[in-house]
Nucleic acid binder design. Structure first.
Length: 311
DNA sequence: GGAATTTGACCGAG
DNA sequence: CTCGGTCAAATTCC
């Protein structure tokens, strides 16, 4: 009652606050940079800062979300229902079929999810592993299911779904569920550049769905340059090409065929986990627009609250 | 041989 | 009952 969070979350709060403070510093630096006339070198710096900011918020959200949902053992133990819903792990009532528990899962209806429609395939620095593919009713293209590689060794519950859009087959609708709680930041976020990059047709559409009743707005976006460069878009419909496994995976995520290598969509999930409270459109680097439909002050406010906790 | 992907089965939600 | 998310054995890749 004294503290809204269990005692052992103290270090998580501290880390979250540090991450946010770092993000604030980077944002300030970026703002300074943006108020100066653009020269080529500054663009690089801006990108770098942007990446740092994104990472900072992503990490913070991961930390905070992992303390709020059932990921946390201490909290889970106090919530029998949460324990029951723990994926396929809590099949106590069906102990006879420990081996075959396919499909015994809990849908994540209430977990944070956010969707992005993009023509870009950008490395998100996380290692994803495909675990399923389904044909969805009334859609042409199958939906592909990915989970974090560290689901089992670190209990990371992050998943994502990738599906080509109906209207625009070169566009991908990517839905993220959950946040990464794993320590799997393999590298700094990387903007994947392509010689065919065209600011005019590179677009990314975010939409966010959350059960959080936080107010959502993003004050950063008014001065926030989207530095999303575009990777060449796969031209073939690999989702239907089951007879060529390697082409499928490599087309989606070119660097995904080696576990130690990096999946090529770091920016996607990183960005989304960072700006998951934001809905808007970001287009090319030189001509970006960001519709500020929602904002971030919820996180900021939360941080203030966090700071007021015993610390 | 280990790791990643494929794919049909399984099962909960609606 | 149908749909869609997940599991896990089989398969493929490196």
């Amino acid at each position: 009652m004294e503290s809204p969070w269990p005692e052992n979350l103290s270090s998580y709060r501290r880390t979250a606050i540090q991450e946010l403070a770092q993000g604030r510093d980077f944002t300030n630096q970026l703002q300074t940079l943006l108020t100066t006339p653009m020269i080529p070198n500054d663009l690089e710096s801006a990108e770098d800062l942007l990446m740092k900011i994104l990472r900072s918020f992503s990490e913070t959200i991961s930390i905070l979300s992992s303390t709020e949902v059932s990921d946390f053992p201490a909290k889970r133990s106090a919530c029998p229902d949460c324990q029951k819903s723990e994926d396929s792990g809590g099949e106590s009532s069906k102990s006879s079929t420990i081996k075959d528990r396919r499909g015994s899962y809990k849908r994540r209806k209430n977990s944070d999810s956010f969707t992005k429609v993009t023509s870009t395939l950008i490395d998100d620095g996380y290692a994803w592993r495909k675990y399923g593919q389904k044909t969805i009713l009334n859609t042409v293209h199958p939906r592909n299911y990915y989970r974090c590689t560290h689901k089992h060794d670190q209990g990371c519950q992050a998943t994502k779904q990738v599906q080509k859009t109906e209207a625009e087959p070169s566009m991908y609708k990517i839905t993220y569920n959950g946040h990464h709680t794993c320590q799997n930041i393999l590298k700094a976020p990387q903007i994947i550049s392509d010689s065919a990059f065209s600011p005019n047709d590179s677009s990314v559409l975010f939409s966010f769905q959350s059960t959080n009743n936080h107010r959502q707005e993003n004050p950063f976006l008014s001065s926030f340059p989207a530095t999303i460069k575009e990777e060449s878009t796969p031209s073939d419909d690999h989702t239907a090409a089951h007879n060529n496994q390697s082409s499928l995976s490599s087309d989606y995520f070119p660097a995904h065929n080696n576990q130690s290598s990096l999946s090529s969509d770091y920016f996607l999930s990183h960005e989304l986990s960072t700006y998951n409270s934001y809905g808007g459109v970001i287009s090319g680097m030189n001509n970006y627009t960001a519709s500020k439909t929602e904002s971030f002050d919820m996180e900021i406010m939360s941080l203030e609250d966090v700071c007021n906790f015993e610390f």
